[in-house]
Amino acid sequence: MPAPMKIGIISESPADEMAVRVLVEAVLGVDVKLVQPSLRARGWPSVAQVLPAVIRHLHFNTDAAGLVVVVDADDSVVHTAGHEREGYYHPRCRVCQLRGIFRQTTKRLPAARGRDRLLRCVGVAVPAVEGWYLCGRDHGVTEHAWTDGQTSGRMPYTRAQLKMRVYGTDRPSLAHEIECAMREVQRHRRDTRRLENDFPGFESMAKDLRDWKTRLATTASLAKSASLALAKPA
């Protein structure tokens, strides 16, 4: 059984953190272990403000392999395939903003703790993480439905309505929020394809995570080659 991968997750609530952890494990196919103390932000724009310090902290002070950042899109511009173009950056897209912060912060950091840099994973839930929780249960809730609503000016649902559908109230207690979030993400524990299909904001997060696997495998392979080369007699 592989050792758990040590990572950091920064999100907006303990409920999000627990649910995101399940989804990360589902994509990676391995157990993850979170750095302590757990990381937390007070919603947007607090996440963007603390992220550089969080990245530096994890890079220098912990052996975390990567950092997963998950925020709600709220009413911001939704990330699209067009934003993925080389060199493109949309100033009101949270995926672009968070990736930009990662890029800016990590590009000058020296190697530390046996790794070149902290791996990046960014997920933006459109319009809120409750949308992900409803995926596979409420077929009308998709990222596409939301962006269609933004285009037409007729939003299919509000964030408060999504909360009502998930928690049965728009004022859930933290304990109830965690219970509901954990119940809903169980649907995606074995297969995240539906979530990736309905929510491209999750799909891009899953791509980042799969890229981790590739990078970590390459790093391990290079390390093995180097050690073999060192062991070989001249």
Binding site: G87, Y88, Y89, P91, R92
Partner: peptide
């Protein structure tokens, strides 16, 4: 107008 898509390379952080 912040709804415009903009921010090509010159806006890239």
């Amino acid at each position: 107008d912040q709804s415009d898509e903009r921010g090509e390379a010159d806006n890239l952080p």
